[in-house]
């Protein structure tokens, strides 16, 4: 996360981690999830789904903080995020100043 200065309690804050799942066949390519993801986790993929739309793809998987905004803004019920398990999160590290 980018701060203009690191908050004093940054080491105590657990930043949640998430994993984005995309149901490509439901996507109609509106691009809202890509545009409005606060962490810019998603990008347009080159592939087509069966209806000829470009679904999103995850370009920065490690950035996802499981905020679920893609899930609520998607008009197609085509994307959702799930929290990443605790052990996995420790292994990835929670460095806020990065």
């Amino acid at each position: 996360m980018n701060f203009w200065r690191v908050p004093l309690d940054a080491h105590e804050v657990d930043v949640p981690r998430g994993e984005v799942h995309i149901l490509e066949e439901r996507c109609k390519g509106c691009g809202y999830c890509i545009e409005f993801c606060p962490k810019h986790v998603l990008g347009v993929s080159k592939k087509f789904n069966a209806k000829g739309y470009h679904p999103p793809q995850v370009v920065k998987p490690e950035e996802c903080v499981n905020c679920h905004y893609c899930e609520v803004i998607c008009p197609e019920f085509a994307i959702f995020s799930v929290p990443v398990e605790e052990e996995e999160q420790d292994a990835r590290g929670g460095d806020l100043s990065a």
Partner: peptide
Amino acid sequence: LLRTDRIPHIWCPGCGIGTAFAT
């Protein structure tokens, strides 16, 4: 909560009704 056999729905790409419905 959805009748998934009817999804994808008929609303156009970029239509906001899907989002309003999901909320």
